[in-house]
C-alpha cells in the first residue's frame, strides 16, 4: 500500500492553556479533494497550517507522502515547496509584479533559470486566465484576480498537493465563481487538495470527502453528498442548518 498524500495522527495543538486541536486523525489520499467545514474557531485553519508546519503541532504526527514533517532530519523547506498553500487574504507580494510573484520562489527554491521560471509562470497564468496581467502589480487587481494569481504562484512550484484556507471568503460574491472554477479545473486534473471552505456547493460537486470539525475534533467525515444530506451527528445537523 502506498502512503497517503497527507496523514494526520493524534494531532494536538494548544496555545498556552487553550487547546485548539484535541486529537485529530484523518488522511487525504493522492488525487483526492478533501473539504473541511466547521464553525468559526473550530480549528480548521490551525489544522491546515499544521500540515505544512506554519504552526508547530503540540503533539501527534503529520506524514506527507509518508515522510514525518516534524522529524528534525526532514528538510522542511523542501517539503513545503511540494505543498502549495493558498490563503484567505491572498498574501501576494505587493512589491513585485504578477510575473515576479510567480518566478521568485521558482528561482530561489527550485533554482530554475530565469527563462524556465518565466515559461512555467506564463503557463500557470494562462491556466488561471490572467495571461494579460503578468506585468500588473497586485494592488491593481481585483480580489478574485489576486487569488487566482496566488493559486498560479503555488502551482508554479509544481506541488504534489494544494492546501486552501477559505480561498473565497474575502471575495465579493460575484468574484467567487472565477476562483472556484480554477479550483474545480485543478481537481479535475487530479490535484490532491485539502480545502477549508464554506462553499457547500463546491464541496458537494468536486469533494471526495467532507470533514466536519467542531471544537478541535473531527465530528464526522464521509462522502460530501452523504454528510450534507444525512448528517449523523447533532452538531453537524445544527451547523448545516445554519449555513445551508
Amino acid at each position: 500500500m502506498t502512503a497517503s498524500a497527507i496523514e494526520v495522527r493524534g494531532l494536538h495543538k494548544h496555545y498556552g492553556q487553550h487547546e485548539v486541536l484535541k486529537g485529530i486523525d484523518f488522511h487525504v489520499d493522492a488525487g483526492q479533494v478533501v473539504c473541511v467545514i466547521g464553525p468559526s474557531g473550530s480549528g480548521k485553519s490551525t489544522l491546515l497550517r499544521c500540515v505544512n508546519r506554519l504552526e508547530e503541532p503540540s503533539a501527534g504526527e503529520i506524514l506527507i507522502e509518508g515522510v514525518d514533517i516534524c522529524d528534525r532530519r526532514t528538510d522542511l523547506d523542501e517539503m513545503r515547496s511540494r505543498i502549495g498553500m493558498v490563503f484567505q487574504q491572498f498574501n501576494l507580494f505587493p512589491h513585485l509584479s504578477v510575473l515576479k510573484n510567480l518566478t521568485l520562489a521558482q528561482r530561489s527554491v527550485r533554482g530554475r533559470a530565469k527563462e524556465e521560471a518565466v515559461e512555467v509562470a506564463r503557463q500557470n497564468l494562462a491556466k488561471v486566465g490572467l495571461s494579460e496581467k503578468e506585468s500588473a502589480y497586485p494592488a491593481h487587481l481585483s480580489g478574485g484576480q489576486q487569488q487566482r494569481v496566488a493559486i498560479a504562484r503555488a502551482l508554479s512550484m509544481n506541488p504534489d498537493m494544494m492546501l486552501f484556507d477559505e480561498p473565497t471568503s474575502a471575495l465579493d460574491p460575484e468574484l467567487v465563481g472565477d476562483v472556484l472554477a480554477v479550483m474545480k479545473e485543478l481537481a479535475r486534473e487530479g490535484m490532491t487538495m485539502m480545502v477549508v471552505t464554506h462553499e457547500m456547493g463546491f464541496a458537494r460537486e468536486v469533494g471526495d470527502k467532507l470533514v466536519f470539525m467542531d471544537d478541535g475534533i473531527v465530528v464526522e467525515e464521509g462522502r460530501p453528498a452523504e454528510v450534507l444530506s444525512h448528517p449523523q451527528h447533532e452538531r453537524t445537523r445544527s451547523f448545516l442548518s445554519k449555513v445551508l
Binding site: N52, L54, D77, E78, M79, R80, S81, R82, I83, G84, M85, F87, Q89, N91, L92, F93, P94, H95, L104, A105, S108, V109, A150, R153, A154, M157
Partner: peptide, 25 residues
C-alpha cells in the same frame, strides 16, 4: 505576517524570505 508565511510556504528559506520579501517592503 502573511508575507513571511506566503514565502515560507513556497519553501523559501528564512534568509531569502527576509532579503527578497520582507526587507524591500
Amino acid at each position: 505576517k502573511g508575507q513571511t508565511e506566503a514565502a515560507r510556504s513556497l519553501g523559501m528559506r528564512p534568509g531569502a524570505t527576509t532579503v527578497k520579501v520582507v526587507l524591500p517592503q
